[in-house]
Simulated scan of single mutants.
Amino acid sequence: MSDESREPFKRLFFALDCAPAQRKAIAQWRSALQLRSGRPVPAENFHLTLKFLGSVGTAQIADICKAAASIRTSGERLTVVLDRLDVWRRAGVLVLAPEQAPPALLRLVYDLEQAVLPFAPQDAPREFRPHLTLARDFRAPVPESATPPEFFLRADRFALFESHKGRYLALASWLLGNA
Rank of each mutant, 00 (worst) to 15 (best):
D83Q: 08
D83M: 05
R84A: 14
D86S: 14
R89Y: 08
R89E: 07
R89N: 06
R90H: 12
G92C: 06
L94F: 11
L94K: 08
L94H: 07
V95K: 09
V95D: 03
L96M: 10
A97F: 03
P98E: 10
P98K: 14
E99H: 12
Q100K: 13
P102V: 01
P103H: 08
L105T: 03
L108C: 06
L108V: 02
Y110E: 15
Y110D: 14
L112I: 02
E113F: 02
A120Q: 02
P121D: 11
P121V: 07
A124N: 14
A124G: 14
R126M: 06
R126D: 03
E127C: 03
F128T: 00
R129H: 15
P130H: 11
L132Y: 08
T133D: 03
L134C: 08
L134R: 11
L134H: 11
A135N: 02
A135Q: 02
A135E: 02
F138T: 00
P141K: 06
P141Y: 08
S145H: 14
P149I: 05
F152H: 15
L153S: 11
L153A: 11
L153Y: 12
R154S: 15
A155L: 02
D156K: 12
R157I: 00
R157Q: 14
F158N: 02
F158S: 03
A159V: 01
A159W: 06
A159T: 06
L160W: 05
F161H: 04
F161M: 02
E162M: 10
E162D: 06
H164I: 08
H164L: 14
K165Q: 15
Y168F: 11
A170Y: 01
L171T: 02
L171N: 04
S173N: 13
W174N: 03
L176N: 00
L176Q: 05
L176Y: 02
G177D: 07
N178V: 07
A179D: 12
